[in-house]
């Protein structure tokens, strides 16, 4: 019989998710890690994934609008969300902006963010695919588990 998942289970799951990162931070003792650059990387990853995912959802909203006899409200509000992401990205990557890394210009930084997002997404999607496929590979048939 399956057990119900409560808040305590979710917290333990979340802590297990963060465990590798926490251990690596503890191990970083004398490392030359630049915290400010880490924050910039977090914000760039956050803004880029938010903006690209928003644009992707705007496209999906068109499908939803069609199924609801063409209402415009949902995709208009999602378009606002995407525009907000684009606007904030342009604002914070302007010359001398908070989110500029080692790239020479705003355009170079934005294009770098997109390629960075693709590489990060590929790594994360691979990890998730392995988790899902490994889970199904090891499922036992009903007869096998009862036998």
């Amino acid at each position: 019989m399956s057990k119900s998942i409560g808040l305590r289970h979710l917290v333990i799951g979340g802590l297990l998710f963060l465990l590798p990162t926490l251990v690596l931070i503890l191990l970083s003792g004398n490392s030359t890690y630049d915290t400010e650059r880490g924050v910039t990387r977090f914000l760039n990853a956050f803004l880029t994934s938010y903006t690209i995912a928003s644009v992707f959802f705007v496209v999906n909203m068109f499908q939803y609008s069609k199924s609801r006899q063409e209402p415009t409200a949902p995709w208009v509000s999602m378009t606002y969300a995407a525009i907000l992401g684009i606007f904030v990205t342009f604002l914070l990557t302007s010359q001398g902006g908070f989110l500029m890394e080692e790239n020479g210009s705003q355009r170079a930084q934005i294009l770098y963010n997109i390629v960075h997002f693709i590489v990060t997404s590929l790594a994360i999607l691979m990890a998730i695919s392995i988790m899902v496929l490994l889970s199904f590979v090891n499922l036992e048939s009903k007869e096998e588990s009862e036998g």
């Binding site: 890690y33 924050v39 977090f42 994934s49 995912a53 928003s54 999906n60 990060t120």
Partner: peptide, 28 residues
């Protein structure tokens, strides 16, 4: 080691960004 700590920033930023988009999508 530095790259892994930056990767942690990327991973958490990615999850937070996609999470916020899904939230906006659901709210809309």
């Amino acid at each position: 080691h530095n790259s892994v700590l930056f990767a942690a920033s990327d991973l958490l930023g990615f999850i937070a960004g996609v999470g916020l988009t899904v939230l906006s999508f659901g709210l809309a």
